[in-house]
Nucleic acid binder design. Structure first.
Ligand SMILES: [Mn+2]
Ligand SMILES: [Mn+2]
Ligand SMILES: [Zn+2]
Ligand SMILES: [Zn+2]
Lengths: 148, 148
DNA sequence: AAGGAAATTGAAATTCAATTTCATTTAAGC
DNA sequence: GCTTAAATGAAATTGAATTTCAATTTCCTT
């Protein structure tokens, strides 16, 4: 896992160099914390985590670093039903969708090529070419179903 | 079509009576304008339309009437990629999803029972019970594909 | 029809996440 | 080390969504 993070940080570094951006210790700390979580975090949440160990790093820098990570292709921006902007590390290149529990908030990821193919088919029947899509299921997760 | 609108307005009226809400001329005008459009409108957009004929009706009342319509089940709230809250009249009882053109902004609606069934199936494989879902396709519509 | 409680209206104020500004600090090339 | 362009972070701004509140209107009861 450590390897993967370093690999990503390399990618980020080359992206920044190519874009003429500078590498700073703040960015390094923030990117590190972000990449190791693997969760769907808001800038605020990441800021809280980062500032536990580094009280001098500002929210704005965390915010901007997340945007930078998204631009460089290392993070994806996600907005679910709470309307907050969240970021998640881009794991591989693969696309996935989300099951979101209305009770405990748990987010489960899944991918289903058959479903994706069907989507493309449906769209093309309308003469519509898909660039991107958003698919989220809201309901109750296994654990919460158990409790009810 | 006129019939349908009146039918809806009846539904709204009985909902309001049941809830102890009062029927006012503002609400009547706003609901009327909204129900006859059949589009995906923001409160701001509906306000503009309404105030053309009724300069004394305030934005706040339009905003609140849309919320009321949503509560009463006559409107659905939708938020697409521009992050603006839009409302659309609930046509029948049936659910539908959206194809959104990145070029001209056209919104095409579709429903596909087979796709829906597959979604339920996928979710249940995770022990997840779906209450609601969001599915939007972003890309280029037939007309815009033609031009390119 | 008049009275009065309760809801509605609409302008203005507030909220709150997202974004921008700007003075100061820092990184990287020379 | 010097230069300068970028980065930082606190504070200010934005803008849609929502709330507040005094004035007005609805509608139920006499
Ligand atoms: Mn995810
Ligand atoms: Mn629709
Ligand atoms: Zn749950
Ligand atoms: Zn189009």
């Amino acid at each position: 896992m450590k390897k993967k993070i370093n690999e990503k940080k390399e990618r980020l570094k080359s992206f920044m160099k190519q874009k003429g951006f500078k590498s700073t210790k703040q960015r390094d700390i923030i990117a590190n914390e972000f990449l190791k979580t693997g969760e769907h975090l808001t800038a605020e949440e990441l800021y809280k985590r980062v500032s536990e160990g580094h009280k001098n790093i500002g929210f704005t820098t965390v915010y901007r670093t997340l945007k930078l990570l998204a631009e460089s292709g290392l993070a994806t921006e996600r907005i679910f039903a709470d309307h907050l902007t969240r970021y998640e590390p881009v794991s591989a290149e693969e696309h996935h969708d989300h099951l979101i529990c209305l009770n405990c908030g748990a987010i489960t990821e899944f991918e289903n090529p058959k479903l994706e193919r069907m989507q493309v088919k449906i769209a093309s029947d309308f003469g519509f070419s898909i660039v991107d899509h958003k698919m989220e299921f809201y309901g109750y997760c296994r654990d919460c179903n158990k409790d009810a």
